[in-house]
């Protein structure tokens, strides 16, 4: 029998919510019994994706929503972070290491590279109505907590 569970939260694209988003996902994933390293990887990837929403998605002072959905299926975590912002003009370029659309703002341009390094798979879909980043990661000791 497959184990599955999900949660979804919506919050305003403000930097103060980054820590909240990280902790929510980490708490939810605990049921798969991840290692400390795995949970830190996931928290970092979530932080990178939410930062992109906060910094880039809503360029005016009116900040929109960030929708964070976390799904667990057997031993795999799937996290989708969606905004309804301006979108990424060139996703391939944006995913290149050290590329930043805001070089003057001391951005490292390593957000997507960190997500790709810390998660097993990262998919980005973007258009002028917003951006959706889906990341998956298999938990090495997954399910022992929920089954045991």
């Amino acid at each position: 029998m497959k184990y599955s569970n999900f949660m979804e939260i919506t919050f305003k694209a403000l930097s103060v919510n980054e820590g909240f988003a990280r902790v929510c996902v980490a708490s939810f994933c605990v049921q798969l019994n991840p290692s400390v390293d795995e949970i830190t990887d996931i928290k970092t990837a979530v932080s990178e994706a939410v930062t992109n929403c906060v910094v880039h998605a809503y360029p005016t002072s009116v900040k929109g929503d960030v929708i964070l959905r976390c799904e667990l299926e057997d031993d795999t975590v799937s996290i989708t972070i969606t905004d309804k912002g301006v979108g990424i003009k060139d996703v391939i370029k944006a995913r290149e290491p050290f590329y930043t659309s805001k070089p003057s703002a001391e951005r490292s341009g390593m957000g997507f590279t960190v997500m790709e390094s810390f998660m097993d798979n990262v998919q980005v879909v973007s258009n002028s109505f917003g951006t959706s980043v889906t990341m998956t990661k298999k938990i090495s000791s997954g399910l022992s907590a929920v089954v045991g």
Binding site: T44, S47, E48, T51, R107, S108
Partner: peptide, 13 residues
């Protein structure tokens, strides 16, 4: 306790 790539940008600056 935690750092992401935004921290790297701050340090490089």
């Amino acid at each position: 306790d935690f750092m992401d790539s935004t921290g790297i940008g701050v340090l490089i600056g």
